[in-house]
Design a binder for these strands. Sequence first.
DNA 1: TCATTATTCATGAACGCTAATGTAGCAGTT
DNA 2: AACTGCTACATTAGCGTTCATGAATAATGA
Lengths: 345, 345
Amino acid sequence: MAKRSTLQVVAEAVGLSVNTVSRALNGKSGVSESTRSRIKAEAARLGYVPNANARSLVLGKRSTIGVVVTDLANPYFNDLVSEIEEQALQAGYTILLLLSDEDPDRERAAIEAALHAGVDGIIGVPVQGKSNPWTAVLQAGVPLVLTARRVTELDVDFFSNDNEAGGYMTTSAVLERGARDPLLIEEDMRISTVEHRIAGFRRALEDHGIPFDTSRRVFVPSRRNVRGAMHWRAEDGYRVARDILSSGRRPDAFLVGNDYFALGLYSALQERNIRVPEDTLVMGWGDYAFSRFLNPPLSTLKLPSAEVARRATARLFARLNGEGTEDTVTVMIKPEIALRSSTNR
Amino acid sequence: MAKRSTLQVVAEAVGLSVNTVSRALNGKSGVSESTRSRIKAEAARLGYVPNANARSLVLGKRSTIGVVVTDLANPYFNDLVSEIEEQALQAGYTILLLLSDEDPDRERAAIEAALHAGVDGIIGVPVQGKSNPWTAVLQAGVPLVLTARRVTELDVDFFSNDNEAGGYMTTSAVLERGARDPLLIEEDMRISTVEHRIAGFRRALEDHGIPFDTSRRVFVPSRRNVRGAMHWRAEDGYRVARDILSSGRRPDAFLVGNDYFALGLYSALQERNIRVPEDTLVMGWGDYAFSRFLNPPLSTLKLPSAEVARRATARLFARLNGEGTEDTVTVMIKPEIALRSSTNR
DNA sequence: TCATTATTCATGAACGCTAATGTAGCAGTT
DNA sequence: AACTGCTACATTAGCGTTCATGAATAATGA
C-alpha cells in the first residue's frame, strides 16, 4: 500500500522540474541525453508508475476499448476476444470486457458500463432484441464496430464470417455426397447469423433441385441469461434431435447451427442405432476443439474468427485515429470447410 | 463525434454552479429536490455522461480491476472470468482483461499493462516461470489476489479448487472400482495445480496399498504462447496415449489432467480396440461441456470455478475497501466428482 | 566582440471533476 | 434585537499529468 510516487517526487529527487521529468520519460525532445538517463534511473529506483487517471484526463483518452460480447463459453467468442486482446495490447491499448449473456437488459447495462468507464471505442457482438441500446454508443460519440451479428437498422462498421456462404458450402457438401432430404437444426434467435445461414442453406437446396420449405429446418430454443450458456446447448440439441427421431422422421443429413448441437445429435442418433455416416450424414458449424475427436470425427465449418477480430480492431483503431470516418464498411470473410468422417460417403 | 457535454455545460444551461450540478447528479445532500430534478432533466436532455478520466483522477480510483489469465480457450478460465465480470459489474466495477498465453514474457507485459492502465486491484492466474513478475504488483501497492495456481514465494491471498482432494477423489473412485494399475496423464507444468493433483493421486494409491512411483505418471508436453492452446491439447493427449499403448503398456485405469486429454485418449484407445469401461476406466478432470456427451460419457471432476471466482472477487473488494489487510488468506474449495459410464464397473 | 540561434530547462495553465470551505437567507430561540 | 442553527447554493482548491510559452544558458557566426 506504499503511496505511489508521482512526477513531483521524482522531480524533487533529481532536482529538476516536473515538466522536464515528464518530457524525459515520454521520450520527447528538449532534454539532454545525460539528464534523461539520470531521470530514468531515478524514476526506476522510485518505482514510478505514471498515474493513468491524470494521464487519461489530459490526453483525453483512456487507451482502452470496450469489448461487449454475449458469452465467453462460446468458443467463437473467446477466440474473438483473445485475438482482440492481442491486437489491442500491441497497439498500446487494453480491453474492458463486458458480458451480456444474450440478455438485452444485461446488454444495455454492459454498454452503459463501458460508456461510463470512458472507453475510447467499442467492439460489440449484439444480442437480438427490439430496442437498440447500441445507438447510445453513437450518440455518445464513441466509435463502434460490430462483429458476428448484424444490426440492420444501425449504420456502423461490420465484420463477420460470410455465413450465407458458409450455409451454402456446408449444405452443398452434404448434397454432393448424395443427401436428398437434409434437415437444418438451427438456433432460435433473431440474429443475422441464423438468417444468413438459412439463406445459404436454401440457396444450396434450390441449386441442387430440392425445393425449400420451412419443414426443412427446426429450431432449438435458445437460452438466455445463463452463465456459460454453451453448457446447455448440447443438451438442447440432443432434445430436439430426439424429438425429431421419435416422430419417425429420418433425414439423410443433418446440418446444425453449432458443433455442440452435433454433440447432442450424436447421442440421439446413437440411441436409435442410426449410424453416421452410413445411415445419415452430419455437418457441424464452428469447428470446436473437440469436433475432430468425436466418433466419427465431425465435418464442420472452420470460422475465420481471428481474422474477423483483426480486421475489426484494425478498423476501430483507424477510427480512433480519425481515419475513414466518412463511410461505414461491411466485411464478410469466407469460412473454410473441414471435411471429416461424419460426411464420408 | 459530438463533443461530449461537461458539467460546466449543464451548469450554464440551468444557471447554477458546477459544484451544485455535481452534487445533484451524485445524489449528495445540499441540493433541494426541485433543483435536483431540474438538473437531472437538463443533464439527460444534453446527454451528459460524466468524464470517467476526470472522475477517476479526483477520486483516486478507476473502478476497474485487472484480470490476468493465461488462456481464454480453457473452459475453467472462461468460467472464472465470466463470474468475475458479473461480480465486478454488480459492485460497480469493470474488468480489464489481460491474457498471458502461458508465456512468462507475455505475463510480464500483461501485468505491466494492467499497472500502467491504473487498475485498482488485480486477480491473477500465474504462469510458471523462474522470475516472478507479480511482485511488481505488490510493489506498486496494488491489491492482488491469485487464483487456481499458487506461487509459494508470494504471500498473497489465494483461492482455488482443492486439487489435492480432487486428485484423491478421482483416484480413489477408480481404485474402488477395481483398478490396480492406474496411470496418470498429467500436464508438464511447474504449477501448484499439477503438484497438488499428483500429491492426491499418490495419497490415494498408498491408502489403497498400491506403491507410488514415477512410472505411474506420464507428462504431456505443454504448449506455450499459442492462441487457443486448448485446441491442441486433445491432439497432445492423443499422442501421449498412443505412445503408451504402442509400448505395450495396458493400465486398467487412466486419470488425466483435463477432459481434452481424455478426448485424445478415447481416440487412442479406440484405435487399439480397447473398450471403455470394460477394458480400462477413464477419469477426466474439469467436466467440460462436451464430456457428458462423449461415448461413453466421461466421469470427471466438476470444479467450483464460479465459487472460486466469487470468493476471490469478494476478497479483492474487501481489500479495496481497506478491510482485512493485515493477513493473507488461503482458500481451497472442494470439487465434486461426476461419475458417468467411463468408470462403470 | 556582439548579435543570433539552438539547447535545456522552468513556469503557468488546463483537462473535468469532487471536496472543503464560505456565504447569504431565513426560522427559531432567548 | 441579537444570537444560533440550518438550508441551499457559490467559490476555491486540488487531483497528476501534458502542452504552450518563456527564460536562461551555451553555441555559432560575422
